[in-house]
Amino acid sequence: MLQFSDGSSEVELRLKLDGHDVQSAKDIFVDADGSSLIVQVRKPGSLVTLIETNNLFDRIKPAETIWYIDDDQLVINFKKQDPDLKWPDIVESWESLSTGSMQLLKGTSIYIVGDSTEINQKVARELAVALGYTPLDTKELLETFTKQNIDSWVLAEGSDSVADAESAVLESLSTHVRAVVATLGGSHGAAGRTDKWRHLYSGFTVWVSQTEAIDENSAKEEARKHMQDGSVGYSNADVVVKLQGWDADHAKSVAQACLSALKQSILSDKNLPGKKSLYIRLGCRGDWPNIKPPGWDPSSSSTATDVPPATLES
């Protein structure tokens, strides 16, 4: 049995030792390293693993880990690297991310972008349920308003017409909070075009991208190159999640990867939610990430270079 508690600057884990016949502390092995933990009990001729994870909810200070035996329990205290982050659980999981992401996002909406409309829709719905956000779908909104499907629209008026219309929808959604928006994929989607991102910057954007990489390191390197390349609109996204193949039954796993990536992004810059809010309040003028002061005219190239960026309110 495992008990977990968060005590602000530290977290505590208690594990029942019933049935393990622990004679002394020498029978216990605790190895904590950054974001991993393994706890083992010595048995005659073997070691029994009580817990093993490479996925603690956040990083700890290994040198400050303390453990002791309290009656029939093993008690382990970890010092957090980030004392301000509330841990819902000891490990990063779907449940802990769903709960923990709320304190990080601060109501900021999420946009799911990528080449596949279906993947965007499925992942967005899972995220909306997990976070208690409103699920929105630009494909459904456009088709409801125009009373025609996207494929027919593309054939009749071309991809540019659809992209322009979706861009208008994204403008109307840019002031929404606590929403997860699934965007159109493919060449007719606004998110794939570098000149259509003005209002997408109002929320956290996740690029869900399929890959043929054979391992995690290769996928990370591919993602890094794509983000640096900047030739497609998706490279403007806050984070990228790579998929090797797609199965709609695994949409929740992809959504979990999205939350994990967003968590790391926000923890690396805790001002991001506030900066997104400021960007919205100033009118989503396209000056992300170097937000200009009130009165800045996006049509004036000289103004853009003559004034310093706006700062966040303390």
Rank of each mutant, 00 (worst) to 15 (best):
A130F: 00
Q244H: 12
D84C: 00
M1K: 07
S161L: 11
P88F: 01
G45H: 03
I119G: 04
G233E: 05
S314N: 08
A63Y: 13
V254F: 02
S9C: 04
S5Q: 08
E222C: 13
Y111C: 00
E126N: 10
R224W: 03
L74S: 15
P309W: 06
S187Q: 14
D247C: 09
R281H: 10
S299Q: 10
D306P: 00
G233Q: 10
K139E: 05
D151Y: 13
L259R: 15
S218P: 04
G286W: 15
L272S: 07
L97R: 05
S98Y: 01
L17S: 13
T146V: 03
W288M: 05
W296E: 01
A124D: 05
N149K: 15
H176W: 14
E92P: 00
K147R: 14
I112P: 02
A179P: 00
S265V: 04
S116E: 08
S36E: 03
T311N: 06
I69C: 01
P308S: 06
K79F: 02
F78D: 04
T144S: 11
I150N: 09
Q103W: 01
V154E: 14
S187T: 14
L37G: 01
V91T: 10
E64K: 10
P293K: 05
L47I: 00
L142M: 15
E64H: 06
E212L: 12
W246V: 00
R178T: 10
E140V: 04
G189R: 13
A168C: 05
